[in-house]
Simulated assay, not measured.
Amino acid sequence: MAAEVQMVLYEDDSVQVQYVDGSRLQLSPCGSEFLFEKAPPVSAHPLEQPERIRQRTHFVISTYREQLQRALDFRNSFATCPFLSESIIPPEGKKRIFIDISEVRWPSLDADDGMICMQSGMVKISSLDGHAYLCLPKSQHEFTVHFLCKVSQKPDSSVVLSEKNNQVKKDKLVEKAGKICTYGQRLKNKENELHYQMMNSKEPLEKKSCVNGTEGREGLPLPDTKHTCIYTWVKQHWSVNSCPEEWKYPLSLALRFHNKMSSVAGIAVNVIQNRTLTSDVSEEGGKEVSVLPRALLLSCPVPHLHRWNFCNSLSLRQSDEEEYPYPELVKVVWYKGITYRLTHKNMNSIEIYPGDGSVFKSEGAYFGNYFTYCSIQEGSEEVS
Rank of each mutant, 00 (worst) to 15 (best):
C149Q: 15
D110Q: 12
K124W: 00
G114W: 01
S209L: 11
L128F: 05
K190F: 03
E163F: 06
N192L: 08
M118W: 09
K138W: 10
K169M: 05
V151I: 14
C135W: 02
C210H: 06
V174L: 08
K170T: 00
D171G: 01
V151D: 00
K170S: 04
L134C: 07
V151C: 10
C210Q: 15
E142P: 00
T182A: 03
S126Y: 04
N192K: 06
S201Q: 15
Q185S: 10
V168A: 14
G178D: 10
L134F: 04
P155C: 01
V160I: 11
E193F: 07
C149G: 12
D171C: 00
A132M: 07
D156M: 00
A111Q: 04
K172W: 05
D171T: 09
Q167M: 05
Q140H: 06
I116W: 09
S127Y: 05
T182G: 10
K208G: 14
N200M: 14
K188V: 02
M122E: 15
C181Y: 04
C117Q: 03
K150A: 11
E206Q: 13
S127I: 02
K150L: 06
Q197E: 13
N189W: 09
D129K: 03
V160C: 00
C135P: 00
N200L: 14
K202C: 12
E142W: 08
Q153N: 06
H131Q: 07
H146R: 14
Y196V: 03
G130T: 06
P204R: 12
P204T: 08
N166V: 03
I116R: 13
P204I: 09
V160A: 14
S158T: 12
C117T: 02
Q140F: 01
V123M: 11
C210G: 00
Q140T: 11
L134I: 10
K179M: 11
K138A: 14
G178F: 06
N192T: 02
G184Q: 13
S139V: 09
A132L: 00
L194P: 00
G130S: 10
C181S: 00
D112I: 01
M199F: 09
V145E: 11
S201T: 13
D171L: 08
G114I: 02
K150V: 02
Q185D: 12
P137E: 07
D171Q: 12
F143G: 04
S139Q: 15
D112Y: 01
K190R: 08
K169D: 03
G130R: 10
G184F: 04
S139D: 15
M115A: 10
E175G: 01
A132I: 02
S201V: 05
N192S: 02
S162Q: 12
K124Q: 13
S201I: 06
L205V: 05
M115K: 14
M122G: 06
T144A: 10
K207P: 06
K179S: 04
